[in-house]
Design a protein around this nucleic acid. Structure first.
Lengths: 217, 217
DNA sequence: TATAATATTTAGGTTTACCTAAATGTATTT
DNA sequence: AAATACATTTAGGTAAACCTAAATATTATA
């Protein structure tokens, strides 16, 4: 199995396992990777034989220590390249994902470490996601959803939980980027939408759905 | 055929055609890419059908305009990444080839152009090879081999014609890097080795083989 | 608990990019 | 020009990563 494909499976399983502690299901992995379930069964059997995941027929799979390390290192590379693309090449946060998706599979440890150094050892990527260090350790975030912030309590926007282009572009349009100060001024009883102020100035209403995907500290 | 494989075939054919105007031979392509001749026959047939090369049974192949453009763009990406690796990440010129060999296959035009811009539109890579512009046009070099420089005529080292690690490391050891001033002080009749001065200081003898792989202007 | 719904696996197939080895074509030499 | 050497192609095969569709497990529901 090529490292390209392998890393994508492990990354998908990592992501799904974060959401569902039991592990990752065949169908969900298939959806995540845009392949058919039968293809996934074949792949996870091989990853099991390689000792990268714990595979038992008809059960959700989990990563072994070795598999988790590969997944996390792939995430590390992805996020470091995203920082490079934004900080050094001037791309916008909604443009970088497809490029990082390719760059993350370039495996030269020295390249990754020198890139990290060149970028000044960033702790977070342009979307506010933490970048694991070379041993696979994440610095802790401790941010919470905007929907759980008390009224009139100023907080700083630190991340997002949805990475779709349309969501990112909409936030741009609203001036909602990482680092801005936000406060919830009102929660609309009818639809749970929230009135927010941005950097002190009177702001606008955000749907519950949007507010729910914004992380603050 | 994946763009990864395709680009490698076209690059190999480009390189071989530079050496031999007739075109590239099956066996040579196979040697260049570390595959067997039968594999090459299969591949060049497909590239012919795609209109990227001119293929006729038992004849040397040449690139079509379209094929040449892909080859040159791959070379452009390769050399730009090499500049990045040396100028920004601090790698040495003998370490970068394998990394650039992977990075060159990442195909996002905007990425390439922004990288070029970030690097200040370099004209040459760390080995002194010219970097084609985005239309595939090379700036002209006009450098000549050190073996053809007249006695006591100071010139500047601008490139090399051998990219092996051992050659590059040997040049490093001798202090022969791009930009140094070199002059041929003596040509030894016995073995055609040359005595060179480097940056004005009395230098050392270089074998004809080494001198023949050094380019100057 | 039997049945229906859903998830997973299996079986059989395709394409790509490689292989080996035999067959055929081209070039060189005597 | 025949024989030999060498290059190229063809034929048949493999492994990886995908597919569809049928078969089998598991889970949920009546």
């Amino acid at each position: 199995m090529s490292s390209y494909v392998e890393e994508n499976y492990l990354k998908a399983i990592y992501k799904l396992t974060e959401r569902n502690k039991d592990g990752a299901y065949t169908n969900d992995i298939a959806y995540e990777l845009n392949v058919k379930p039968g293809t996934v069964t074949e792949a996870i059997k091989k990853l099991g034989e390689k000792g990268l995941i714990n595979y038992e027929k008809y059960k959700a799979v989990t990563l072994t220590k070795a598999g988790k390390m590969i997944a996390v290192k792939t995430i590390r590379k992805h996020r470091l390249w995203e920082v490079f693309l934004v900080e050094k090449l001037g791309f916008k946060w909604d443009e970088i994902h497809p490029m990082a998706e390719e760059l993350e599979h370039i495996n030269f440890e020295e390249l990754t470490e020198r890139l990290d150094n060149f970028l000044g050892h960033p702790e977070f990527d342009p979307h506010g996601d933490p970048i694991p260090n070379k041993d696979g350790v994440f610095s802790n975030h401790k941010s919470v959803k905007l929907t759980s912030i008390a009224l009139n309590t100023p907080v700083v926007m630190t991340g997002i939980e949805n990475h779709t282009t349309s969501f990112l572009q909409h936030l741009d349009k609203l001036g909602l980027k990482l680092g801005v100060q936000v406060a919830v001024k009102e929660i609309v009883d009818f639809d749970k939408s929230v009135l927010v102020s941005v950097n002190g100035k009177k702001g606008f209403y955000l749907s519950h759905d949007i507010a729910h995907n914004i992380l603050c500290k």
